[in-house]
Amino acid sequence: MNNQNRPIARGFRGRRTDPANRARVPPGQHVTQDFPVLSAGPTPHVPLTEWTFSMHAGNTPLGKWTWAEFQDLPHTHITVDIHCVTKWSKLDTVWEGVTIDALLEAAGLTAPPTAHVMAHCDGGYSTNLPTADLVGGRGMIATRFADAPLAAAHGGPARLLVPHLYFWKSAKWVRSFEFITAERPGFWESLGYHIYGDPWREQRYSGD
């Protein structure tokens, strides 16, 4: 860290990250115990009877599941650290859901059909990701948090979970994947946030 040219905040001590966790907290982040809610609009409430998750590439449908069908897909538990671009990190969060690997397999695909995906959500939100960041156990559609159904304010009934990227990439209320060949920016990525969002490289905003 090269902090030599920075102004020193007179008398500022701060609350240092527990040394045991230091290696787990990306630059500029601090650990929180609570679970802040950040959303650009009202929380959508879609009845589970109307909920579906679908995947397509261009006009080609690749798979579609009702809530009941989605429950029948193989589920995975993971415990991960999450990092929000608004500076909080939360350690050891426990999630359950369907990995993107399992979804692709259920759709009869051995690999993502394109290099990028746009995740679309209730409420009009979207986010773009390289498909390489979703496979190999790195991404899931999560439906449970801390052993309970995922609350609507936190993205329930189902949100994308890609914990190695800033948390806006883990889109709440996710409903479909649009596989795309050329990367294009999603909602926050069009509004000044970084196109990729790696917390370890502090890619918060465009140009970082």
């Binding site: 860290m1 902090n3 920075r6 701060g14 609350r15 601090h30």
Partner: peptide, 14 residues
């Protein structure tokens, strides 16, 4: 906002 302590520790908030 980024605050840097005299030993280089930093904290950021919006």
């Amino acid at each position: 906002v980024r605050l840097t302590a005299d030993d280089g520790y930093e904290a950021q908030r919006s």
